[in-house]
Design a protein around this nucleic acid. Sequence first.
DNA 1: CTTTTGTGGTTACTAAAAGAAACTAGGTGG
DNA 2: CCACCTAGTTTCTTTTAGTAACCACAAAAG
Lengths: 126, 126
Amino acid sequence: MQQPYNVYEDRCPTRQVLDRLADKWALLILDRLQGAPVRFNQLRRDIQGISQKVLSQTLKKLERDGLLSRSVFATVPVTVEYALTDLGQSLIQTVSTFAHWAEQHMDAVLLAQVKYDEGAASTSGA
Amino acid sequence: MQQPYNVYEDRCPTRQVLDRLADKWALLILDRLQGAPVRFNQLRRDIQGISQKVLSQTLKKLERDGLLSRSVFATVPVTVEYALTDLGQSLIQTVSTFAHWAEQHMDAVLLAQVKYDEGAASTSGA
DNA sequence: CTTTTGTGGTTACTAAAAGAAACTAGGTGG
DNA sequence: CCACCTAGTTTCTTTTAGTAACCACAAAAG
């Protein structure tokens, strides 16, 4: 008995899910929510470079897919908290490893880039 | 002694790496290369919906970052094989888990979407 | 001996999305 | 009254992603 879903297939609904999750901002948001709920503007401050629009959009998509929950508290000013759901928890270890992989392997990547660019230079050069 | 790299920082080079890896096509390519080298057109056939342009571009970026290697064989017609490097191998388990997560949790995602859309309907409706 | 098929790409065009910045709305404090 | 906090939305511009066509080579088909 094999699975009904195959992400390699064009029209499989998993492909859309992958497309939404395989996003720089989505990964950073999920990673940031690891451990405890975080508020909108806190996410905005912590994830440097993200705009309100993209943060808002990405949060909506992740909420719709059931990976995180949105809670509004009637404080003054209003508090909106985002937190991982159980579904989000099922992915967070993988997301975290993926998002931080570059931090561990950055030197190797930079070295590879230098080598690649040298090769490209010699092709067009001598 | 803490790490010099932090993916949450806007100008950290890891951010660019994350941006390139956090891509639907990059993930599917890396996942497909797991186990054995694969040729260009084989990748194109297996990863349904990818275009030559995007496949070519993505392979170049992944090669530049040192995650995969490109080997040309002077056969007729020419054979070009792509394979994971050691650096690529260091990420493949995470990539594979991530890429196939949706296949395991698709039902939960679909359920969440229905619930979310119902809520949105009731907001604008009654 | 011309057409089709296969290889592995590149190039131009177009549609969609991402990003920057301003604006909204409700309430507090100066 | 104006500025500032919250959490967003809207508008506009720029960038990216995707579609489709084209290229060069060689072999096989007709």
